[in-house]
Design a protein around this nucleic acid. Structure first.
Lengths: 149, 149
DNA sequence: TTAAATCATGTTTTCTAAATCGTGTGAATA
DNA sequence: TATTCACACGATTTAGAAAACATGATTTAA
């Protein structure tokens, strides 16, 4: 569904957002460990999000990544589009480049409503909401008996 | 969404089914060209489907692949499961191995209905239906001015 | 019966996403 | 202001999917 990069991005952003409740900046080392992703790879992805102003970063001692007030309205769709582009919305399920409304592939109609639902979900879900659920313990990023609930 | 192999598989199966209206066996060469896929790669995939009895094949001169009466009830889900397994139904959207109903990831709830809709669609759609739409010209596997409509 | 056609199968190569590495740059603090 | 810590960024390596190849097995038809 999503690329590995995109999975990491979403996990990271949610995690950082939970930390931001305490107005903290989070180091890449801590992020990578918390979401179970390779450190260098994760940092690359987060740099991409920073460039697009989907999150912030601070260099130097006591530096790290953060999601501030200016990022409270960021939604899942923003992250997904930043990393995976919009092939998830436009891409043909059968991989046909010429597939479109006018020239539909055999599965085009069948996927229409699924795509719509997916897009609406990504558009309406904020990272903040997801992070609040994580904080409340309703959802998890790790194993039940892991460090992070 | 699907792996490349799975895309090819679905395209091929639909195409073969359209040919079967005339009770013909179709050569791998013709199939690969019709669906715009590499010959050797496609043959590998179809062999997999043959082993699972999702289609038939004949060796020797005038041989090829076919979908006979015994395959008329085959549905999209059969093809997808044969090639991609069921990670599309069970796999976590965030790639977390431990994600489950009891230990849901932050997106678990959001993806629930989307998954359900996808699964129901794959279960209810027969290859035959898709091939009939293709024959009627309602859908296409190729460019508008390509050989195969 | 033999040769050609065609699927079957194991191996190798290629390509790209994923992961790693090395060096640069900016900020904090002693 | 020098040192250290942490992100930034380009380059490289790795791994796995995708594609290509080589050879074997089976059927048909001349």
């Amino acid at each position: 569904m999503f690329s590995k990069s995109c999975e990491y991005a979403i996990r990271a952003v949610i995690f950082i957002c939970t930390k931001n409740e305490e107005n903290k900046v989070v180091k890449i080392q801590e992020i990578a460990e918390a979401i179970g992703a390779p450190v260098y790879y994760t940092s690359k992805i987060l740099q991409q999000l920073c460039r697009l102003k989907l999150m912030g970063s601070l260099k130097g001692q006591n530096g790290g990544f953060y999601m501030g007030l200016e990022h409270k309205e960021i939604r899942l769709i923003d992250i997904v589009q930043a990393i995976d582009g919009d092939k998830i919305f436009n891409g043909c399920a059968l991989g046909l480049s010429q597939c479109s409304e006018r020239n539909p592939c055999p599965l085009h109609a069948q996927f229409k409503s699924i795509r719509k639902e997916l897009k609406e979900m990504l558009e309406s879900t904020t990272i903040l909401d997801l992070s609040l659920n994580l904080l409340k313990g309703k959802t998890t990023l790790k194993k039940l008996n892991g460090i992070i609930k």
